[in-house]
Design a protein around this nucleic acid. Structure first.
Length: 505
RNA sequence: GGCCCCAUCGUCUAGUGGUUAGGACGGCAGAUUUUCAUUCUGCAAACCGGAGUUCGAUUCUCCGUGGGGUCACCA
């Protein structure tokens, strides 16, 4: 295609009607990857032409998601010092600020006869559609208002009657064909194309007009968007032709679907990027995962973990899958864990503290439990890493470090042991620990070296289970040595002491 | 319903006119193990169906089936 000799300019154009959906994010990501790979420009454009669906703050939300995800656009609305500003030479990038442009272009089509004014009421349109359905015809507008005389149109407009502007589709035009970078040759007959409304009666354009006008004015080279737009592409091509503009390249991406293989949509639980972030998924893991939904590097490649830079390098539009892909959270969990493990402890602590800890720390502090040191946090991170699928799981996995879990003294006894032996073993370990230098608690190995001989002699389960249980108060936890390593000598002995007296009574 | 699109393990996918159809997630079994998690080993698991082309089709063609998308003054 001409992606090699044309300056690549692509865009992601969401409507600010809520949160950014992971499917939308993937479209944005593919646009981004394609742009970066071709040293092109990635643009964010806000399509707020539906006044009824606008959601307060949604544009800012969208911008923040891109910031949080580390997918940066070159042109578009950005937030600077708390204010929305347009960056780039092709603005404004918010469609509601471009209304005159659409109106002028609609007028151009009106005077060239490529479009016409329509005064039909919603009721009449409904009737026409119903009739066509009954006649087993594709439900299209019947061009009723095309026959209106110029005089009459002027009179009705002057009288303040509401009207829309429709595209005048010539159904004799035959097949409208285009080459899609993902789908290949696509042909749709002009008779299937409706006289689409271009300008609504409220003076706002519809998506079709606005996106074509903007894509042209913003010099968009490749329109990379979701598959749901495939069938309306002929309308857009007709518009480019009506204006006499060059037609951009198209690539329609397969849909992201749920387990029922239906289009992933809001109202189905967590589908917003923000939801995933809040749930404790790392931006880089989510990006990696979503990139692989519908695309893969092929050639027998078995690598699955890709940084954004690697994706930019490897991405290939022609390798994008044609069929839809199921968003499988279980595999995302696996990938997220991989990313968590790759983080260094300091970084992991930082990320956990950022949004997954403060509430817990607050309630602990209300209970009079004091917070742990930075050093302890890093050790906890080291231990939690391999057990954590999401950042949000850190507290649950580590909570016993602040305060040992409540337990029944009887549970201190290992399944193959009895209370007497357990007590004896715990006292023996306590004695060993008491004799240890503080520095022994700096390393898991040193602690192991000190206690393991006893454990091997008396039975590992018999010695280690009660000690671990006494330290954690939990049936599942890291090893006793790892826990002591975090807690330090004093706290470890304290907990052991408590357990011994609990079992003694 | 019209039109359009799609089709390899449950899921994401690799792959080829001749392969033991490969990998990953998940599942199952086992090893390690004081518990959980790791780690390691092994196992089960797919070319939607039918014709045609061909010496030979999972691969190419057609038909069918299934699934999906779209048919707004929403994007």
């Amino acid at each position: 295609m001409n992606s090699d000799n044309k300056e690549v300019r692509v865009r992601f154009a969401p409507s600010p009607t809520g949160f950014l959906h992971v499917g939308g994010f993937r479209s944005a990501l593919y646009n981004y990857l394609f742009a970066k790979q071709h040293k092109g420009t990635f643009i964010l454009r806000i399509e707020d032409t539906d006044q009824n669906r606008l959601v307060e703050g949604a544009t800012e939300g969208l911008i923040n998601v891109f910031t949080n995800m580390g997918v940066h656009y070159d042109e578009g609305p950005m937030i600077e010092e708390g204010k929305l500003v347009a960056k780039g030479d092709f603005g404004p990038y918010i469609q509601s600020e471009r209304l005159d442009l659409y109106k002028n272009h609609a007028n151009e089509l009106l005077s060239s006869g490529k479009a016409y004014r329509c005064f039909c009421t919603p009721e009449r349109l409904e009737m026409v559609r119903a009739q066509m359905q009954r006649d087993k015809q594709p439900p299209k507008y019947d061009k009723h208002c095309l026959s209106l005389s110029t005089d009459e149109i002027e009179k009705r407009v002057a009288a303040g009657e509401k009207s829309v502007v429709r595209l005048n589709v010539d159904s004799e035009r035959g097949e409208i064909a285009f080459t899609d970078h993902v789908r290949g040759e696509v042909k749709i007959h002009a008779r299937e194309v409706d006289d689409q409304v271009l300008m609504k009666s409220d003076g706002f354009p519809t998506y079709h007009l606005a996106s074509v006008v903007d894509d042209h004015l913003m010099k968009i080279s490749h329109v990379i968007r979701a598959d749901e737009w495939l069938v309306s592409t002929p309308k857009h091509i007709l518009l480019y032709e009506a204006f006499g503009w060059e037609i951009p390249e198209f690539a329609h991406l397969p849909l992201l679907v749920n387990m029922e293989r239906k289009k992933l949509s809001k109202r189905q639980g967590d589908v917003a990027v923000e939801d995933f972030l809040k749930a404790g998924y790392l931006p880089e893991a989510l990006t990696n995962f979503v990139a692989l939904l519908g695309w893969n590097p092929g050639e027998g490649e078995t690598q699955e973990k890709f940084s954004l830079e690697e994706l930019v390098d490897r991405f290939d539009l022609s390798r994008v899958q044609k069929g839809s892909a199921v968003f499988d959270v279980v595999k995302l969990d696996w990938l997220n864990n991989l990313y968590i493990r790759a983080l260094d402890n300091k970084e992991l602590v930082e990320r956990v503290r950022k949004g997954f800890l403060s509430e817990h720390i607050e309630s602990l502090s209300l209970m009079g439990v004091k917070d742990l040191s930075d050093e302890q946090y890093e050790k906890m991170a080291e231990l939690a890493k391999e057990r954590m699928k999401k950042l949000s799981e850190f507290f649950e996995l580590s909570k016993f470090f602040w305060k040992a879990g409540e337990y029944e003294a009887a549970d201190l006894v290992w399944k193959h042991s009895d209370a007497e032996k357990t007590l004896e073993n715990m006292r023996a370990v306590e004695a060993i620990l008491e004799g240890l230098d503080m520095s022994a608690f700096e390393s898991v190995e040193a602690l192991e070296k000190a206690v393991m001989p006893l454990a091997d002699e008396r039975g590992r389960g018999d010695v280690l289970w009660p000690v671990r249980y006494a330290l954690s108060g939990q049936k599942a936890s890291p090893s006793p040595f790892e826990i002591m390593w975090v807690l330090g000598k004093e706290e470890s002995l304290l907990r052991l002491d408590l357990a011994i007296s609990a079992l003694s009574v």
